[in-house]
Design a protein around this nucleic acid. Structure first.
Length: 338
DNA sequence: TCTCCTCGAGATCT
DNA sequence: CTCGAGGAGA
């Protein structure tokens, strides 16, 4: 399963970051010790923000670690460290302009790993909260791994995720955009402590406005644990009161299988009820039409001809003399015109 | 009705 | 990474 990706000649040269990454069976990087991404509104937490030389933990380095300790929703302590990476030439002009961090500011700074150690001490086992927090955590995690230090394993809360869930209709969900929308001051952004404070205010806003709303949080938790409400046929109703009783769909029970090309399933089901038909979610003795969508992409289908279980069942019922028609998507649309 | 799986699309972090 | 869409099986 998970193996260290050591190259055969690693002993004869200096180890690089990628030598330490753990890969899954498909070659993707995994970080098994990482804490869980939580769905809750704690009063006590640590906010974390990093400034780095770039976006990729594989090649980029940490320049600054900022953190804030919050107890009872109140800031009680700040933590800030500059870090001087081994190769200071990695600090591009772009990043200097973005963050305002110059090489001179890092002259007396220690190596990132010392900042990480201090931060982990500061954080203890608190919940760590951040904006797109995986970005920051992955940097800490990978850097620790390359230094043979136990990587950070605190549980996490991603405030960006909360923003996307609760603030709809924003042009985007960048920290700055969200702060602006909530009238939160974002001066001094792109420095660690400043971004921590902005993130704290965004989180507190969501917590106060939405975290106390029982209905909203119920929805939140439901979605959070992926207990998605399945599409229920009975929920699809029609406003129409008069139907053409000669229409081929009138009074007929329709079931769909596979992905439709021209519309989604919900729209198709709406058409069925609009013509006086009924939807079903499985093939039964009541079923009159099975509409075949595209199953090409579905790897779960084991039938050699690529037929879904719904189709196989429908064919059996048809053989046994039931009034059931198996039709293609296009035939379904043709029927609507009749 | 519930749980688990897969896939693709779309963002954000410096 | 996260989510929604969709299918399968119990």
């Amino acid at each position: 399963m998970s193996l260290f990706n050591f190259k055969s000649n690693t002993k004869s040269r200096e180890l690089k970051k990628e030598d330490f990454f753990i890969l899954d069976e498909n070659g993707y990087r995994v970080r098994p010790m990482k804490g869980n991404s939580l769905f809750m509104f704690p009063d006590d937490y640590i906010i974390l923000d990093l400034e780095t030389t770039g976006l990729d933990p594989l090649v980029d380095d940490i320049l600054e670690i900022g953190a804030i300790k919050v107890v009872d929703n109140v800031i009680i302590e700040e933590f800030q460290r500059f870090c001087r990476p081994d190769d200071i030439s990695m600090l591009s002009g772009f990043i200097q302009k973005l963050t305002g961090i110059t090489p001179e500011m890092l002259d007396n700074a220690e190596h990132p790993i010392n900042g990480i150690k201090d931060f982990m001490q500061f954080a203890g086992d608190s919940i760590i909260l951040g904006y797109n927090v995986h970005f920051d955590i992955n940097f800490l995690y990978d850097e620790a791994l390359t230094r043979n230090i136990s990587p950070i394993k605190n549980d996490l809360i991603d405030v960006m995720r909360f923003s996307k869930r609760f603030l709809s209709d924003l042009p985007d969900y960048k920290l700055k955009t969200v702060a602006q929308e909530l009238d939160i001051d974002s001066t001094g952004s792109h420095r660690a402590i400043a971004d921590c404070k902005i993130t704290h205010n965004v989180y507190q806003h969501i917590k106060n406005v939405i975290g106390n709303d029982g209905n909203a949080t119920d929805e939140f938790y439901k979605k959070a644990i992926n207990k998605r409400k399945p599409l229920e046929c009975k929920d699809i109703t029609t406003d129409k009161t008069e139907f053409d009783i000669t229409h081929p769909l009138y009074g007929q029970v329709c079931v769909f299988t596979g992905t439709l090309e021209k519309m989604n399933r919900k729209q198709a089901m709406q058409l069925v009820v609009d013509f006086g038909g009924e939807n079903g979610d499985r093939v039964t003795r009541k079923t009159n039409f099975l509409v075949l969508g595209n199953n090409d992409y579905c790897p779960l289908i084991k039938d050699p001809d690529g037929k879904s279980t719904k189709q196989l069942k429908a064919e059996k019922l048809k053989e046994s003399g039931q009034n059931i028609e198996i039709i293609s998507e296009n035939v379904f649309y043709d029927m609507l015109e009749m």
